[in-house]
C-alpha cells in the first residue's frame, strides 16, 4: 500500500508537467472548470467545462444606519426581491435567487443566482436605496461562478 501511495504521488507530480494545446481560447470566457481523473495505472479522462457555470454566487453586505430594526433572513430575502421588482418589474422579481447564508449580526449574506441573471441581480442590489424608509446600501464584496471561491479571499488576508 505504501508503495502504491508513492507511485501515486509520482504520478501526481507528473500531472503538472502535462500540457495541452488550448484550442481557440476566447478571452470572454467567464469561467473554466477542469477535471483530471487519474485511475491508476492508466491516466483517466480530462474534462474541460467552459462558460458552463450554472449559477453565480455573490457575497454581499447590507449597510444600514445605526439603530433601528435589522431584517431577519426572510425580510432580507424579501428586500432582495423588492430590489429586483423595482428595477426589473415582475419578471425580474421572478428571478430565482437563493439566500444561502445570512448573518443578522453583520447583515452579510451569500446569494446564489442563475448565471444569466447575475447582471440583473447585481444592478438591482446596487440601485436599491431604501429599507423601510431608511437609507441603505448593498455592498457586493465578492462574486464568483464557484461557491468554493467565496470561502477564501486573499484580499482580506490581514497579517498583523
Amino acid at each position: 500500500m505504501q508503495r502504491q501511495a508513492q507511485k501515486f504521488c509520482a504520478l501526481l507530480k507528473s500531472v503538472s508537467c502535462v500540457s495541452l494545446a488550448n484550442p481557440g481560447w476566447d478571452s470572454t470566457v467567464s469561467s473554466v472548470f477542469v477535471t483530471w481523473c487519474q485511475t491508476a495505472p492508466s491516466p483517466g479522462p480530462r474534462r474541460v467545462l467552459r462558460r458552463a457555470a450554472e449559477h453565480h454566487y455573490l457575497r454581499v453586505r447590507l449597510e444600514l444606519p445605526d439603530g433601528g430594526a435589522r431584517p431577519n433572513a426572510a425580510q432580507f430575502k424579501q428586500l432582495v426581491v423588492t430590489a429586483l421588482r423595482e428595477l426589473h418589474g415582475e419578471v425580474g422579481a421572478a428571478l430565482p435567487v437563493d439566500v444561502l447564508t445570512y448573518e443578522e449580526k453583520t447583515l452579510s449574506a451569500i446569494l446564489r443566482v442563475i448565471s444569466s441573471g447575475l447582471v440583473k441581480l447585481w444592478s438591482a442590489l446596487t440601485l436599491l436605496g431604501f429599507y423601510q424608509n431608511r437609507r441603505c446600501a448593498f455592498r457586493v464584496l465578492q462574486t464568483s461562478p464557484f461557491l468554493l471561491a467565496l470561502s477564501g479571499n486573499s484580499r482580506e488576508l490581514v497579517l498583523d
Partner: peptide, 25 residues
C-alpha cells in the same frame, strides 16, 4: 483554485477552476 479528491483506492480527481482573465490551466 484547485482541488484534489482522493479516493480510498488512491484514484484521484484534480479539479482546477479559473474565471475570465486567466488561461486554461
Amino acid at each position: 483554485l484547485y482541488n484534489f479528491v482522493i479516493f480510498r483506492n488512491l484514484d484521484y480527481w484534480l479539479q482546477m477552476a479559473v474565471v475570465a482573465h486567466d488561461d486554461c490551466p
